[in-house]
């Protein structure tokens, strides 16, 4: 549990950080909250020679409204999200999900940028960002680009980030007025990753589902959008048969690992239940 030797850098501008990362190449890793990277370093499963700490860059922090979108700096902590009136008002599901991440100590330190950029299938925010139609701003030696969250994840810990690039902010469209939402997460205990989790954002019209997006956490090596399941529920009043069909459609795209949380068969089964429960709870919240 003792990390190997490394050099520590703390740039104060984004340009310096990008420069450091592109110059140092594969031997360097950016450091945000450190909740994934530091334990890996303590086990010497990760042995970066350089750590580029992003905490000194003020431009990476904060939550602001930009027209119909909410822009969140990558170094904004889960605690900051929970303390934000803007988030509570415009993206209540983000508030609900942040509360289900680990415990207060972790949330004081853990950042939304680290959560989405690491490509860890166990993290909660990636599937939620896909559900909300968020996009990520990536800045690197070649300049800045915006990428939809749904195009970002390529495999466990593999993402669209190019060498030297940093995920600097997340832009999320404010949810529609009167929308319903729910993040259902089954976990063994506080601090654990999801055995299975589902995010649902929907709108209702005349007692029927008008629009619906469903995201799935930790049920595949990347976060998933359960598109077929969402299609199944649109136009229905979420009767029991529809819920069953939607859960089955969602389960069809899941391929979780068997681990101490349970065999894959169990995780898929409860993944379907999380979808059902999230749909039901979201619908009840919609107006």
């Amino acid at each position: 549990m003792i990390p190997g030797p490394f050099s520590y850098h703390r740039p104060v501008t984004l340009a310096d950080a990008v420069k450091l990362l592109s110059t140092l190449g594969d031997d360097a890793r950016p450091l945000a909250g450190g909740h994934s990277l530091v334990p890996m370093m303590k086990l010497r499963l990760a042995t970066p020679e350089h750590l580029v700490d992003l905490h000194g860059i003020d431009a990476l922090k904060g939550i602001r409204r930009d027209g119909t979108r909410i822009v969140i700096g990558a170094m904004t902590t889960q605690h900051d999200l929970l303390a934000s009136d803007e988030i509570a008002r415009s993206l209540p599901i983000l508030h609900e999900t942040a509360l289900l991440i680990a415990d207060p100590q972790v949330r004081y330190r853990g950042t939304i940028g680290g959560n989405v950029a690491n490509g860890d299938p166990g993290n909660d925010m990636p599937a939620l960002m896909m559900t909300l139609g968020a996009s990520y701003r990536l800045e690197g030696p070649g300049g800045a680009r915006d990428l939809p969250a749904s195009d970002f994840y390529q495999g466990a810990y593999f993402t669209a980030l190019e060498p030297g690039e940093i995920l600097t902010s997340i832009s999320v469209p404010a949810a529609a007025a009167g929308h319903g939402y729910a993040y259902e997460k089954l976990k063994r205990k506080i601090g654990d990753y999801a055995t299975a989790a589902a995010a649902v954002v929907l709108t209702m019209a005349g007692g029927k589902v008008a629009t619906c997006t469903i995201g799935l956490t930790n049920l595949n090596e990347t976060p998933l959008l359960a598109t077929d399941a969402a299609k199944i529920v649109i136009g229905t009043s979420l009767d029991e048969a529809t819920l069953k069909k939607a859960a089955a459609a969602a389960e069809a795209i899941m391929s979780p690992a068997s681990d101490a949380r349970g065999p894959a068969e169990y995780r898929k089964h409860v993944g379907g239940i999380m979808v059902t429960r999230a749909l039901t709870r979201a619908a009840a919240r919609a107006s």
Partner: peptide, 27 residues
């Protein structure tokens, strides 16, 4: 839930408090 479990090759699969159930005040 608290167990020390081995796979067929004799690897311990519950070697940290992530997988070795140590309840918090919440549970």
């Amino acid at each position: 839930g608290q167990e020390i479990r081995y796979d067929d090759e004799g690897n311990v699969v519950t070697g940290s408090f992530m997988d070795f159930f140590m309840p918090t005040a919440v549970e």
